[in-house]
């Protein structure tokens, strides 16, 4: 079930990226000048943060599979902390954009910037909640009730946030 959900999410983002690219080709000057207003350094930092949190989630799964539940909960805690760092960095970026009046309605680039990054941020926040729930269950030594909602599926959701960001980063910030 989670794979169908992930595939649908990637499909939705993928279609948005295609529309973004077509509009970019039509108004290249506007898109390039708008992209120059973005903070690529913060986006790079957030990419490294998210990729590292993904690695911690992988280690949590490895620990859990080998029966080291305490380590699994700790790795999840580290991943959640990095998720928090991602949110803080994104908030700093948003504050800067709002201060400069670069909100929705300025042009098509910023419409997509807000739509894509805010929708992704919503997924990250949801992912933090999911990982927190997983870590809590593991720390308490409770078994996962449903086969469709366990550490593997929760981790897959977090990796999906990672996947979307590694697509979003080059398309929105770099090219």
């Amino acid at each position: 079930m989670i794979w169908i959900f992930i595939f649908m999410e990637l499909l939705a983002f993928g279609l948005a990226f295609i529309v973004f690219s077509v509009l970019r080709a039509k108004s290249l000057a506007v898109f390039e000048s708008s992209q120059a207003e973005l903070n690529q350094g913060l986006a790079l930092l957030n990419t490294l943060v998210l990729v590292t949190s993904g690695y911690f989630v992988v280690l949590a799964n490895g620990s859990y599979d080998s029966g080291r539940n305490r380590y699994a909960a700790r790795w999840l805690g580290a991943a959640i902390a990095l998720g928090g760092v991602f949110v803080i960095v994104k908030a700093v970026e948003y504050r800067d954009k709002i201060a400069h009046g670069l909100t929705t309605g300025v042009n098509q680039f910023f419409d997509f910037y807000w739509l894509l990054t805010a929708f992704h941020l919503f997924h990250v926040l949801l992912g933090i909640l999911v990982l927190t729930y997983m870590a809590r269950k593991i720390r308490k030594g409770e078994a996962f009730a449903a086969e469709d909602f366990n550490l593997k599926t929760g981790s897959a959701f977090w990796h999906m946030c990672d996947l979307i960001w590694v697509l979003l980063f080059p398309i929105l910030y770099l090219i």
Binding site: W3, V51, G54, Y55, V57, V58, K152, S155, A156, H159, D162, L163, V166, L167, F169, P170, I171, L174, I175
Partner: peptide, 26 residues
């Protein structure tokens, strides 16, 4: 440059997808 940056993004996507998400076993 743009093609190179995109290609790097694609490689990263597949690394996460097949390895971190364990889709190589799917």
């Amino acid at each position: 440059v743009a093609y190179l940056v995109l290609a790097i993004g694609l490689v990263k996507f597949f690394l996460i997808f097949f390895d971190f998400m364990e889709m190589k076993h799917a």
